[in-house]
Design a protein around this nucleic acid. Structure first.
Lengths: 222, 222
DNA sequence: CTAAGTCAAATAATCGATTATTTCTAGAAA
DNA sequence: TTTCTAGAAATAATCGATTATTTGACTTAG
């Protein structure tokens, strides 16, 4: 999906898809907002056809809702949906990390250590975009060798859904500190090949992360 | 997704999306085949724009592969992918049926009995399309009250993927008979609110069904 | 007043034509 | 023969204009 957008021969469709996807995750549009096609055309300087193709993909991917003859809308944010996404992430990433520990080789361990190191080196001077990039690289590395293309696909999709909440939530230094500490612990459990332990911790990690994301739903946040 | 296609104000895009989806599931196109856009335009009597929008949706949904500047291709069939889809179905539908038994009410029991009855009334005079419709209605009814929109979405997507294999496989009366018997047993276990038993049986059911689907991969099937 | 109806403006969807890229073919050089 | 390279043909992607539908303001009947 993302892959095609940064390549040499990327089409206008795939480029605008990726830009819109990022903007949707970053909360550039309000929840439930109606997207005016001609307005998007102007702001993103892109033709109607590639724009509509990108919007169709985003709707099929689950980041937009399409209503016949009424265009496209940003999805709402709700506590119920966040809880659903959170529980699904717990189940699927728990499953994936167990399988990854089963199948992952030495090269995986190295990549994981590297990904965690790069993430841990970030500080106040790091851009949000760069941190998000390294953070998702780390989480991806954790589950990558699980052996299931479809499991990885669903996990990626759920991450995007989850990030719609997390990225618009106000920061919480206390929770953030605990979450960062868990990244290191996750690596340790993986290196120790502790399947049950790693599963429990990633489930806790997702639950804690969900507490941050929930802050996006409190009225005082906007 | 499907909902918008049969409605009153369905657009050309949503109609052709649904038609193409069904044709892809029914194996109308060969695995790995390149879809010529202008050929599709002629055979389906539809304009270029709605056709391209539908193809973009199908690619995002996972029924087509899109290569920049090289159009759209039907996905290949492989044993590895079928095994992946099968295992994911086992996990997710197992999870879903447990949750459905936890949450489902009397109305659900009634709907499930009805769905099974309608399916069991089919015979040689029933069209394949009608049987497929009732069969998917039954399986959908089984998991419907699981309480997770995302779980249901993923299960539906995996069913479509699985059906690409199953529908092009040669029939096996012996396996089909056993599968049909399991439908009734599933209803009984659900009515008895036997979570573990129902989970085990649906996992077996999916594995057995996968044995049918595997027949699509043997050379002698074509 | 309210509710149903009508028209104009706004906007989504679609069409037909154009542009850009890939693929195929044929010929030339190694 | 093989490999490389035009150039032509095929096809994917995009554009600009047109059509269809919805929305909202304004009537008018009840």
């Amino acid at each position: 999906m993302t892959k095609n957008a940064n390549q040499q021969g990327a089409t206008a469709s795939s480029r605008i898809f990726e830009v819109l996807r990022q903007d949707l995750l970053n909360g550039r549009f309000g929840a439930g907002e109606r997207l005016s096609i001609s307005a998007l055309k102007d702001t993103y300087q892109v033709g109607l056809s590639p724009l509509r193709e990108a919007l169709n993909r985003l709707a099929a991917y689950g980041l937009l809702r399409q209503e016949n003859q009424r265009g496209f809308r940003v999805l709402e944010l709700s506590r119920g949906e966040l809880d659903d996404i959170t529980e699904m992430r717990r189940q699927m990433e728990g499953m994936a990390i167990e399988r990854a520990i089963e199948h992952g080789d030495d090269e995986w361990e190295s990549q994981l250590l590297a990904a965690n190191h790069r993430l841990s080196l970030t500080d106040e001077s790091t851009s949000v975009n760069q941190w998000e990039f390294l953070h998702s690289r780390f989480h991806n590395a954790l589950v990558e060798p699980c052996g299931s293309v479809w499991l990885l696909r669903f996990i990626g999709q759920l991450h995007d859904q989850f990030d719609r909440y997390r990225r618009v939530a106000p920061g919480s230094p206390e929770l953030r500190g605990r979450l960062d500490a868990q990244h290191k612990e996750l690596v340790d459990l993986v290196l120790a090949r502790d399947r049950k332990g790693a599963r429990e911790l990633i489930e806790d990690h997702i639950t804690l992360s969900s507490q941050v994301a929930q802050l996006s739903l409190t009225p005082c946040s906007g």
